[in-house]
Design a protein around this nucleic acid. Sequence first.
DNA 1: CGTGTATATAAGCATATGCTTATATGGTAA
DNA 2: TTACCATATAAGCATATGCTTATATACACG
Lengths: 115, 115
Amino acid sequence: MSERQPTDIKSAATILKLLGDPTRLTMMKLLQSHDCCVCEFVAIFNRSQPAISQHIRKLKDVGLVKEERRGQWIFYSIRQDYEEIAFVLDLLDQLADQQALVTDLEAQGLRISCT
Amino acid sequence: MSERQPTDIKSAATILKLLGDPTRLTMMKLLQSHDCCVCEFVAIFNRSQPAISQHIRKLKDVGLVKEERRGQWIFYSIRQDYEEIAFVLDLLDQLADQQALVTDLEAQGLRISCT
DNA sequence: CGTGTATATAAGCATATGCTTATATGGTAA
DNA sequence: TTACCATATAAGCATATGCTTATATACACG
């Protein structure tokens, strides 16, 4: 079991700045449990589709997430080969679980449309 | 040894946003090793005194650091009683050491003036 | 093929951020 | 007290951010 390399300040600041937004941080936490498509995030965050797309783009631009088309939808997932992935996952592991956001939607009958 | 409580998303996002700036992140990392005064940061970051003061203020406003006058200077240190201190310290622990910033200054004869 | 659905992108705007310069504050010390 | 030093605050400005609305793209599928 090899010790992880320390994260350099610049990389860390870039990551933290990106995650320093409640929407993006919650997105990443949710992505840790399962892949999501844009429409799912739109439903969960009750925000416009472009707003969600723009958040995802930022995450994608730095390489934190990747996309994959499945039928009509594009699913996003965390890139496990991201350079500082351990730093990111450790951070996410310390956050309160957010699955309730998904199950609440289902309970309301607003089941995520694209799954 | 009690398990730490998970950090809620909102608090985490606030912290990460604050630390998502290379200057403030480095400040916090340095403060983990020893208290610093404003003039020390000014020398290390080669930035104006107001710029440094304004960064410190943000850290102070959320309760991450506290101040303490020692003679002519005001020294800043990490508040160990900060609510999410464990989250913050864990994060800082994963960053590359920044002590070189201090020793380099000393090596150049630009010894920190206020120590 | 054409149509619909999911998503991305562009442009515009209001607010936030991080600096600058100028000035205020507050304690030290002659 | 007066002058000085470290630091804080205020005001102004350029850039960044995150939304909005409008529109483009890109598949899927009848």
